[in-house]
């Protein structure tokens, strides 16, 4: 008899708690994982796909699910450090499959070599390449994010990445690069 009571009472408690949690999961429903939005806000939004994901949002989702944080080449060390702070993990150097040089670059088409195949136009994630079939293409330098996705598809290797020269217009103070030492 006591056994029956025990089973009954336990079943009741479990049902009660289950109902409470069920209600709470509806009442306190959160639409999207806010961490994904926050990582997405840190990422540079070049949608370049160098991390191996189709764009910044999918990579943000992957990082939230435990993917390595050091795959964003356009973002560089700064972005890695910000994501590390957000996720509460140690910052790590950029993935070795990417080149270390992360100075801002834009693509440049060597126009006399261009055959007008439009392959680079299809590859460009931000529509920064102008041109039509059998017509010479060119890059809109202001729109180019420097993701280098157009370099690989070019059949005649006429696209190269050129470093943007620093001018008074695009100069940014980089205070972090000034070494600050604490004197004991």
């Amino acid at each position: 008899m006591t056994l029956l009571i025990a089973i009954l009472v336990f079943g009741l408690i479990a049902a009660l708690f289950g109902a409470l949690l069920g209600y709470a999961s509806i009442r306190f429903k959160v639409d999207a994982d806010p961490i994904v939005e926050q990582i997405d806000a840190i990422l540079p939004q070049t949608q370049c796909g160098q991390c191996g994901y189709p764009g910044c949002k999918p990579y943000a989702q992957a990082v939230a699910d435990g993917e390595a944080i050091n795959k964003c080449a356009p973002g560089g060390e700064d972005t890695i450090k910000k994501i590390a702070d957000l996720m509460g993990v140690e910052a790590e150097p950029l993935d070795e499959s990417h080149e270390k040089d992360n100075r801002p670059k834009v693509a440049f088409i060597i126009e006399e070599d261009c055959i007008g195949c439009t392959k680079c136009i299809q590859a460009c994630p931000v529509d920064a390449i102008l041109g039509a079939a059998k017509q010479m293409h060119t890059i809109i330098a202001d729109e180019c994010t420097g993701c280098d996705l157009c370099v690989a598809p070019c059949p005649v290797d006429c696209i190269e990445m050129r470093v943007v020269p620093e001018t008074t217009q695009n100069w940014l103070w980089d205070l972090n690069s000034i070494p600050v030492q604490q004197i004991d």
Binding site: F17, L20, L21, F28
Partner: peptide
């Protein structure tokens, strides 16, 4: 287990 789960949901929302 229930208290922890409930706390997690409330904190997540609020």
């Amino acid at each position: 287990a229930v208290v922890v789960q409930f706390t997690e949901m409330v904190v997540h929302k609020t």
